[in-house]
Computed example of a mutant assay.
Amino acid sequence: MTTQTTIEQLQALEAEIKHTLYTLIDLELNESYQEMTAHFAKLLAKVQAAHLIDYKLNVLVDPQAYGTETCILLESLLEAKNRPNKRHQLLTHRIILKIWLRKNRHFLNDLLPQMF
């Protein structure tokens, strides 16, 4: 048995990431931050199980080699890890979520303008 993630598993993960993104956007609009964190933690565990990140949230693969939403999520993790954060040495889910939502076109183009 191999630990290599199959194409079908990656496609399922891509769908899961996309679904979670829309769930998180809805939760953000409702200001349900604890629920957002819980959903996001579950998603990160699945991304880790697929061997795309490690337990320290280090990206282990080239994001460009993956589907759109997976790529955006991995790039968001990289960007969050590279940000200087003087107040907190710990990388929080909230920081990653903010970056991920900002990188998502659907959020920027469709939902954000409706908020104002």
Rank of each mutant, 00 (worst) to 15 (best):
I96N: 03
I95Q: 15
T20C: 09
D54C: 05
L74Q: 01
Y55W: 06
E31R: 15
A45T: 10
I99Y: 08
Y22N: 03
S76R: 01
F40T: 04
L52Y: 00
L101H: 07
E69I: 00
Q48C: 05
P113C: 08
Y33C: 12
V61A: 03
Q48K: 13
L108T: 12
K103I: 07
Y33D: 13
L29Y: 08
E69A: 06
K46A: 08
Q48I: 02
K56L: 09
L73E: 01
T5S: 03
A12E: 00
A49G: 04
T5H: 03
A50W: 06
E31G: 08
N104S: 11
I99V: 09
I7K: 03
K56H: 15
E16Q: 11
D110M: 08
L52S: 00
L77W: 07
T23F: 08
Q4M: 15
E14R: 04
V61S: 03
L90W: 13
L78W: 00
D54L: 06
P113I: 15
G67F: 12
R87L: 08
Y55T: 07
M36G: 05
K86T: 13
M1E: 04
T6E: 00
L91G: 02
H106R: 13
D54F: 08
L77G: 06
M1V: 04
W100Q: 04
T20S: 11
K86H: 11
Q11H: 08
K42R: 07
